[in-house]
Design a protein around this nucleic acid. Structure first.
Lengths: 329, 329
DNA sequence: CTGAAAGCGCTTACAG
DNA sequence: CTGAAAGCGCTTACAG
């Protein structure tokens, strides 16, 4: 590759020292520097004429930020399946990055171990970024811990409990709107319900179960594996809540006449028997942009002051009324 | 951010010089270096113990490659609309990058001028990458030229004619399969057709028009703006070809009884009156992976030898038989 | 066989 | 007000 133009060459062109070029380039106007307008103009002209662009690697090495944000996903993000989950998040990240004039580094080179990508490896380009966003349903506790210990600015998307370390994240509050949905069911006369779940022990799964167990409705908990037994288990239950929309679709296949249905997850685009499925809407784009804002806050705040920051934030999911919770009969 | 471990510290730990650490780290085994196995093992242990990761910026500055590929799109790529076009390409790029152990830098910070992102700007991080892939329907001639002049390794996706410079690209051959489609129409007895197009002057538009004009069928060319006049213009035409699938859908709306229909673009997922639209299939994922392979070739080949490389490659689109070309009546 | 040194292209105190 | 110098963390000839 042909050698590129350096500050030294621009300096020669303008008849000043290389350091002066740097000062002008970075608009440094502090106590210690005062460049006369004429010199400044001359340097700027030379910069322009040479179409000079600073070498980002050298800048970085000299201690500057790179204005690059890392994007780490634990699985492929750009595949059709990946996009289903990551799509709205990536969209939000792109929009926010554009607004903040950040470039985005996708760590696609990360080696895969046990079906999951690893963030830390011998050649990780993590340190080229000013900070990093982590996406994925299930993360690796030790990696989160290492990031925390190294005081590297990062933000996870989704509530984390893979580690006890204080992981900065932006997560979805499912409990509040779930409680609201349950209230609505009660208002329509429902007294007994069934909650169909996947039996997972993730933070989100626990949150949802908590909303179910602490609400005013009496719920029978049924795991997905026992789905087929649902008609028999039903008894007096008049409403079925499910952990996710796809589970609600499975339940609908069972053809249980007259039962109401709602999901404690994203339901947009889900129709059941001609009606919109009642449930929640997760504002994923906003989630992403809030994550980047928190990340920027971390990047621009000295690590010694991090403890004063609100580093775990929640975005309340919205209730999607839909039409699958009817009056109890 | 807490200071990180450097080679110097690892060297102290292992009781060797910093240069030796570098040599071991990079597995440099040439004429000038010969490190005894014992020392090598000691250094490796220290590397391991310190969980050392080389600073990518320093590596880069010292003349190494970064194993980062830039991805430049002239519009937002991760938006729902963007994904429609870029999705399969990005998917292919991610898969290929994973295979080649490359990270992907998305230039989302690029300033937008006239609705298009600009690759070159004061702070472009282009030079952090070993090479770059360019995506977009319409590119900027001067930017392509500058890349060529600077001998920067890059590959455009899609045939380019924004400039006379020799732009490396991987493009789709529409002419060959379009001719095939026309042959099929002839075989089914069609003699006169209409070609509905958008009147654009892009390379692809011209390619398609060429296939239409040079084929054995007599075509009347009609621009999209005159779509409504189609029933009147039809006369003896028994088949309508369109530039793209969406145009075929528009034509179908006109409800012209008994006319056959085909599109010279991607038709997957397009149904018309219960039948699959006849047309082409563009292997976008393969397009992407071929682009990265060409890019790798450019990166690993000295620029002085580039002229010997086949830098403009075509991928023949596939014919999608579909069911909308019937026997002529 | 390995260490000391130069250099990559920047930024930033520090002298003048 | 501006230039000379040190330093960021590496790689790579070049001496020993």
């Amino acid at each position: 590759v042909r050698r590129r133009i350096t500050q030294r060459e621009v300096a020669e062109l303008a008849g000043v020292s290389q350091a002066t070029v740097s000062v002008v380039l970075n608009d440094r106007t502090g106590s210690s520097v005062r460049i006369p307008e004429a010199t400044r103009a001359r340097v700027k002209a030379a910069l322009e004429q040479a179409a000079y662009v600073a070498d980002p690697a050298a800048r970085r090495l000299a201690g500057m930020g790179s204005r690059i944000v890392g994007v780490f996903t634990y699985e492929a993000a750009l595949s059709p399946e990946g996009m289903e989950f990551y799509g709205p998040l990536l969209n939000g990240i792109e929009v926010a990055a554009e607004r903040m004039a950040w470039d985005l580094l996708f760590f696609t080179s990360s080696p895969v171990e046990g079906g999951q990508r690893r963030l830390f490896h011998r050649k990780t380009r993590l340190r080229l970024t000013d900070g990093c966003v982590l996406l994925g349903q299930q993360m690796v506790g030790e990696e989160l811990e290492r990031l925390v210990v190294e005081e590297f600015p990062f933000v996870a998307i989704g509530r984390r409990d893979e580690t006890d370390a204080l992981v900065p994240y932006v997560a979805v509050d499912y409990v509040t709107p779930a409680a609201e949905l349950i209230e609505q069911a009660v208002a329509k006369g429902h007294r007994r319900g069934i909650y169909v779940h996947r039996g997972r022990e993730t933070a989100v799964a626990r949150d949802r179960r908590r909303a179910i167990e602490e609400g005013p409705l009496e719920f029978l908990l049924v795991e997905e594996a026992r789905l087929a037994e649902l008609p028999r288990l039903r008894r007096e239950a008049t409403v079925i809540f499910t952990e996710e929309a796809s589970l609600a679709q499975d339940v609908a296949q069972l053809g249980m006449a007259g039962v109401s249905l709602a999901a404690l997850g994203e339901v947009r685009g889900n129709r059941i028997g001609g009606r919109e499925l009642t449930g929640l809407h997760v504002p994923r784009q906003r989630l992403a942009s809030e994550a980047l804002e928190l990340l920027e806050l971390l990047i621009t705040t000295e690590t010694s002051r991090w403890s004063g920051l609100d580093r775990q934030r929640f975005l309340v999911a919205e209730v999607e009324p839909g039409g699958t919770i009817e009056e109890a009969r």
